[in-house]
């Protein structure tokens, strides 16, 4: 009930401005084109034998498209907290929400889910356009097979972003940090290049991010593997879900206590 109220409110505010929606989609596409075209220019084509050896997927546009779309959605809950909550803090609507008998956790996760859904809609469009531009072979079966893992990934991303929910209530100006972090994720999770070009320590570090595993599984499914063959990555992802939700919840509880002492977003 609370969830649907928040989602409806956010959707109305976003989709009320078609030009904004179009510009968001365009940002999504252009950013993708930059790197895929660059890769193709360097390769002199779309197929990389090296990429196939290191990741099992040799077609660069497909590789990049999957990673990119998942990356965009993965940072969405974080953005919801960092920008969405900040906006409400600045405007004073945040306190009006807190004042209601609804639980803060419900309100905040409602916000994150709204943004995740909005970005998912945008990314579905970007994905479809990407499929057309890069002539990516795609079957309904692959899409259906990918759905469960995509849903699991979304839940993991929500937990990952939740870590920021507590922080932003106290520190409303963490925007630039979040932006740097978002772009760092492109490196840590091997969105546009295979992770094996990174130092060993970095590869180990990358395991901490749900995006790394989500992208690996979906890419595996796209080259025709079954869930059994990518089970290791699936397990990682499933383990990370409770871990991030747990950490996020603890930080949030602490922040909630602090903010009732110091006031919301005052610092």
């Amino acid at each position: 009930m609370i969830l649907s109220a928040v989602v409806e409110k956010e959707f109305r505010m976003f989709f009320r401005y078609p030009l904004r929606v179009i510009s968001s989609i365009l940002v999504g596409i252009v950013f993708l084109l930059q790197f895929v075209f660059f890769g193709q220019a360097v390769l002199g084509g779309r197929y990389s034998a090296l990429l196939e050896v290191s990741t099992g997927m040799g077609d660069y546009p497909t590789y990049a498209l999957i990673g990119y779309v998942l990356w965009w959605v993965s940072v969405s809950p974080m953005e919801a907290y960092v920008w969405g909550v900040r906006r409400e803090l600045q405007r004073g609507t945040f306190e009006m929400n807190i004042l209601s008998p609804a639980k803060i956790v419900e309100l905040l996760s409602g916000l994150a889910i709204s943004w995740l859904l909005m970005d998912s809609v945008l990314m579905m469009i970007v994905f479809a356009i990407g499929v057309v531009i890069f002539a990516i072979p795609l079957t309904l079966l692959i899409i259906l097979k990918s759905l469960p893992i995509v849903v699991a990934s979304l839940i993991a991303f929500l937990g990952f972003g939740f870590v920021f929910a507590g922080l932003v209530m106290m520190l409303k100006n963490i925007g630039p940090f979040a932006q740097i972090f978002e772009f760092a994720m492109l490196f840590f999770s091997g969105v546009f290049f295979p992770l094996n070009v990174m130092p060993k320590a970095m590869i180990a570090f990358s395991k901490l991010f749900p995006l790394t595993h989500a992208a690996a599984v979906v890419r595996g499914l796209f080259v025709g593997k079954g869930y059994l063959e990518v089970w290791g990555e699936v397990a990682w992802l499933l383990v990370l879900i409770p871990v991030y939700w747990g950490i996020g919840y603890l930080i949030f509880k602490w922040a909630e206590r602090i903010t009732r002492v110091i006031g919301y977003g005052g610092y």
């Binding site: 790197f35 360097v42 390769l43 002199g44 772009f183 546009f192 290049f193 295979p194 070009v197 990174m198």
Partner: peptide
């Protein structure tokens, strides 16, 4: 940081796809 991000990304894409620092295609 955006500058380093772009150029770093270019370097890693190139190496990850071709394994080399130069590209004949380009």
């Amino acid at each position: 940081m955006m500058g380093f991000f772009f150029v770093g990304q270019a370097l890693l894409i190139g190496i990850g796809l071709t394994g080399e620092r130069n590209s004949r295609a380009l």
